[in-house]
């Protein structure tokens, strides 16, 4: 173009050559996957502080403050106890239905809240994204960490419920730890994936509650998992056993409750649970990274 030469009469070089000579890079370029992972690791303190800050911020305007972290799962458990334990007196052929129900509910709520706040983790932090430069994956990962802290509180409540309903304390309880860690990795990957989707499609925020409710019914939270084998065609019931949430719920039930019915044997559950965590974790991370330069645009 001739006019660019006119507006820069003294520059002998083209802008591109000038940029190359001084090692300038195109604005908003995405780093390689390895560099991105390294960057993310160096921002671990930011991720931890951000997760913590979000947790604190969510309670600042409430009068009871962080007490709600325990009160929320406790209230939930109380409601379900009144409805299913007292009013309907549901047993569903399960020895300890209340503990069974609460385990499913709390484990499911972990994923549900991660997905819901993960969907908005980019859109609700646009100011931060536009002002400061940090690996954007920090945000959905921080969301997962915040919800993990909520999970710890609800697990404490759950252990209380399990003890009160007369379950024995066994070494199997320790298995709940790796099970929940696998679920956390799975959730992290899921949060990364829905964060990118949610940044692109604003409608996702409206759709997510329905997706999660459907997922809840498919995960045997409110009723015995035996219902799947009894009421569904065998092929579909088989397929249901691959549902990652059902797997994580079953793993925790298997760890905490003595006589809980399982849809599939524990070994299969562990293998599938680890597989899902790996798949979602790596898949979600790579998928999110591929959109890195787009966050905050528009």
């Amino acid at each position: 173009m001739t006019d660019t030469a006119v507006s820069r009469p003294d520059s002998a070089q083209s802008p591109t050559a000038l940029a190359a000579r001084f090692g300038l890079r195109p604005a908003g370029q995405r780093p390689t996957l390895a560099n991105y992972t390294r960057q993310l690791w160096s921002y671990r303190h930011f991720i931890a502080s951000f997760a913590n800050a979000k947790l604190v911020a969510s309670f600042t305007s409430a009068r009871l403050g962080r007490l709600w972290q325990v009160l929320t799962p406790l209230t939930n458990a109380a409601i379900y106890f009144v409805i299913f334990g007292v009013v309907l007196n549901t047993r569903a052929g399960i020895p300890n239905f209340i503990a069974y129900l609460c385990t499913g509910l709390f484990v499911f709520t972990f994923t549900q809240t991660v997905v819901q706040s993960g969907t908005q983790s980019i859109t609700s932090n646009l100011g931060l994204i536009r002002a400061l430069h940090f690996p954007r994956a920090s945000l959905p990962i921080a969301v997962t960490l915040t919800q993990f802290q909520h999970l710890i509180a609800s697990i404490a409540v759950l252990i209380g419920i399990v003890l009160v309903t007369g379950e024995p304390v066994t070494f199997l309880w320790l298995l709940a730890v790796p099970a929940l860690l696998l679920q956390s990795v799975f959730n992290g990957g899921l949060a990364l994936a829905v964060a990118r989707l949610g940044a692109k499609v604003a409608d996702l925020k409206q759709i997510m509650p329905f997706v999660m409710r459907t997922w809840m019914y498919a995960s045997g939270v409110l009723y015995s998992v035996d219902m799947f084998a009894d009421n569904l065609p065998p092929a579909v019931a088989q397929l249901m056993q691959l549902n990652p949430l059902l797997i994580y719920i079953e793993l925790v039930r298997h760890a905490l409750l003595e006589n809980a019915p399982l849809a599939s044997p524990p070994t299969q559950l562990w293998l599938l649970g680890a597989g899902w965590a790996l798949l979602a974790g790596i898949g979600g991370f790579v998928y999110f990274w591929r959109g890195e330069e787009e966050y905050g645009r528009g």
């Binding site: 802008p15 940029a19 890079r25 604005a27 911020a57 100011g127 931060l128 536009r130």
Partner: peptide, 21 residues
């Protein structure tokens, strides 16, 4: 194209941090 040295930081009026903190 835009070429930059390092990462430019944008300081705008809307650069909101966390208002509850």
């Amino acid at each position: 194209a835009v070429y930059t040295a390092g990462q430019p930081s944008l300081l705008g009026v809307n650069a909101a941090l966390l208002n509850d903190l």
